[in-house]
């Protein structure tokens, strides 16, 4: 517990700084109201819009924990949305649409995991294949059109509904976080993932079923990406195979890294990844809300800030930099 808290300090400090900046620069940020049975306000919006990346980051944490990576999650999101929308378009029941979409996403995850474990293809290459082809499959399903969903359909609840005052995407993301945390920490899955990422050879000697664990991690990733895709599609009540989930694999990886999990695998932090995802979303919201001398800051500024964040996080984790700093200190002292 203590160890995981220590891991979380930097991301939490970063988030706190961002929030303080917001509190000062745009006081409306923390203005949360209860309107028409739902909470509303910028802070709630951050969570709501950040939900897909939070879901992806949860799965990506596990994948990166084993020392892998999954570039295909954005494409998987697109497939989920496309399939669900297509089925709804064909008057399929909502439940069937959801189950079928999620099922296909799990299959996509197993495909990725299979390439990694059975064919021993490096994860970055293995998932690149579905990253490219998956979006094509999504477009194939939608025939290249944007399929709209009847805004009255109960399916849209996934993206727009409210439960207990909270937007449904937030509820889904937080419950998924709880479920994943429970699965990972109440079973041995978490320890196995950390063991494989920390020392695969030793894990094999200890009789851990390395292949199976790897495979299931990619399958879980597929499921979570599917959920994220459904939220995205339900939110705009349309499946846009071209843009759904675009770039989000990168945001998810970024969230995991910000959360203190190293790309090399081993110790991972689900909570850190959630904080990382919230930081990323807060950044974009902050930039949208911030005004500078009466002018609003262009949203593209977000990308530049992100670049700086990535570089800072990398440097903070760099052993090489730590070594250099220590050396300089020793010379001076």
């Amino acid at each position: 517990m203590r160890r995981s808290l220590r891991q979380l300090i930097w991301p939490l400090v970063a988030l706190a700084l961002l929030l303080v900046f917001n509190a000062v620069a745009s006081p409306s940020f923390f203005h949360v109201q209860f309107v028409n049975g739902r909470l509303s306000g910028a802070a709630i919006d951050v969570l709501n819009q950040g939900a897909p990346v939070m879901l992806l980051a949860l799965g990506m944490t596990l994948v990166i924990g084993t020392g892998g990576i999954d570039l295909s999650v954005g494409a998987v999101m697109a497939v989920a949305g496309a399939l669900a929308a297509k089925l709804l378009h064909l008057d399929a029941p909502v439940a069937l649409a959801i189950v079928a979409a999620l099922g296909v996403c799990v299959a996509a995850g197993i495909w990725n995991g299979g390439l990694v474990t059975v064919a021993s293809i490096p994860p970055i290459v293995a998932t690149l294949i579905f990253m490219v082809a998956g979006r094509g499959i999504a477009q194939l399903i939608t025939d290249g059109q944007i399929i709209t969903i009847n805004p009255g359909s109960s399916f849209t609840v996934i993206g727009r509904g409210v439960i207990g005052g909270l937007p449904v995407p937030v509820v889904i993301a937080l419950s998924a976080a709880l479920v994943i945390a429970a699965i990972v920490r109440l079973t041995s899955l978490g320890v196995f993932i950390e063991a494989i990422g920390g020392n695969e050879e030793a894990s094999r000697y200890a009789g851990i079923n390395v292949r199976w664990i790897r495979l299931s991690v990619y399958a879980i990733m597929g499921l979570l990406a599917g959920l994220a895709g459904l939220i995205d599609t339900a939110d705009i009540a349309a499946a846009d195979a071209n843009n759904s989930g675009l770039y989000l694999e990168l945001d998810a990886i970024l969230a995991v890294v910000i959360g203190g999990t190293a790309l090399t695998g081993g110790r991972f932090s689900l909570l850190g990844a959630l904080v990382g995802a919230i930081i990323i979303q807060t950044l974009s919201t902050t930039i949208l809300m911030t005004t500078f001398r009466g002018h609003s800051v262009p949203p593209e500024f977000n990308l530049v800030i992100k670049a700086i964040v990535v570089l800072m996080v990398c440097l903070l984790q760099s052993d090489e930099l730590r070594r250099m700093v220590l050396q300089v200190r020793r010379v001076q002292g």
Binding site: T187, S188, E194, A195, G198, E201, A202, S203, Y205, G266
Partner: peptide
Amino acid sequence: AAGLVPHLSVRENMLLALQGAKGWARRV
């Protein structure tokens, strides 16, 4: 190289084989 998972705790390292044999679902 083949024994320890360095960042895992003494407890976790000790239980690794037992847990591996029980499978992930039946956690001690």
